[in-house]
Design a binder for these strands. Structure first.
Lengths: 201, 201
DNA sequence: GTCTATACGCGGATAGAC
DNA sequence: GTCTATCCGCGTATAGAC
């Protein structure tokens, strides 16, 4: 997801507020992401927040939609489908683990308030975006390989993508739960990729 | 996780409060799970809550640890390792999807408040419990099959368990995000199990 | 566009009676 | 063990001046 900054546009008050809100959510949690805290972090008064957003829910939903860093990097890993299948899947898994590790807390937080969850889902559906896009992109990646004969004809690509992406998703989750015996990220990514490859040929 | 009810013990005030809190969290979200709401749902005054728990965090953490229904059913699916591998994994995947679908909102909610997350993790570590236990149990299940020769000797069981359980975990998550093109639970479970089996032989 | 000041209800928590 | 009554700070939101 591109920020206005990376598009080279003017960075307005709205962007400063969104950045500040994202920071507060990441560091103190959604429960402590109050209008007071966000305003203080942004260097503006609370009243200014309400000039740029109709209310708190709209602000938070905007943060969720416009401040999900790392997705571009993940997409780049999937554009590269010339490499060996296992190598490519390892790169995808590594990027996916990093992406989900960064974004899991913010993503999970929206479940704490049904009104935010509903607004967020509605907003995503309108523009056709959402977390399932990662799975769909992996399916496309696998289809390219299948067309070149690297993957067997009758393989269930949907299930395979679900296994790989889901494993990365849960690995990131377990990382936040401080599971000490968990494998390091790179090792886990390689293992997931190797097993997925084994299932596909 | 057994409740006092299923152990046949007396159902005291504490249990009533925990049940009420779990209901409020599930229906209104963690953000709206106030002491007022919980007390009203339990049929007791707020003051009574504070006679049974030192504070709100302790109450919520107790709910998370003692009100995770369906885990027993999931465990049962894994005890049955006499069946064909794909059949067994399908049963496990089906139970896992149901389990995560039920518990994801409550589990995800704890990320909204770092103090609750920390207290929850500390509590789990003390008794050696946690979400990773599901993965470990699947590894054990796979090892039994490996010892009987149903799975190849050099298979990475840890990665395989991560793929299957992770896929179910994320499938449940996507379900809550209202992804319309998502496969039905049973179909998804069968697909995940079949692909995992393919990777293991 | 941004500020200061303020309204007002809600949430966590406790004192003390029964 | 449970209740009623109450405290006090916090959080959202707005009015109105500059």
């Amino acid at each position: 997801m591109l920020t206005n900054l990376s598009r080279g546009q003017h960075v307005g008050t709205r962007d400063v507020i969104l950045d500040a809100a994202a920071t507060v959510i990441r560091t103190r949690g959604m429960a402590n992401a109050t209008t007071r805290e966000i305003a203080k972090a942004a260097g503006y008064s609370e009243a200014t927040l309400y000039k740029h957003f109709t209310g708190k829910v709209e602000l938070l939903v905007a943060v969720l939609r416009e401040r999900s860093p790392g997705f571009a990097h993940l997409a780049r890993a999937m554009g590269d489908d010339d490499a060996d299948l296992t190598t490519g899947l390892t790169a995808i898994a590594t990027a996916a683990i990093a992406f989900y590790t960064d974004n899991f807390p913010m993503l999970a937080s929206i479940f704490s308030d049904p009104s935010i969850l509903a607004a967020h889902n509605a907003g995503l559906r309108e523009v056709g975006a959402g977390p399932h896009r990662v799975n769909e992109a992996v399916v496309d990646y696998l289809r390219h390989h299948q067309e070149r004969g690297t993957i067997r004809r009758d393989a269930d690509l949907y299930a395979a993508a679900g296994l790989l992406v889901g494993a990365c998703f849960q690995h990131a989750f377990l990382g936040h739960m401080n599971w000490s015996d968990r494998r390091p990220d790179r090792e886990a990514a390689a293992g997931f990729a190797a097993m997925t490859t084994a299932a596909l040929r």
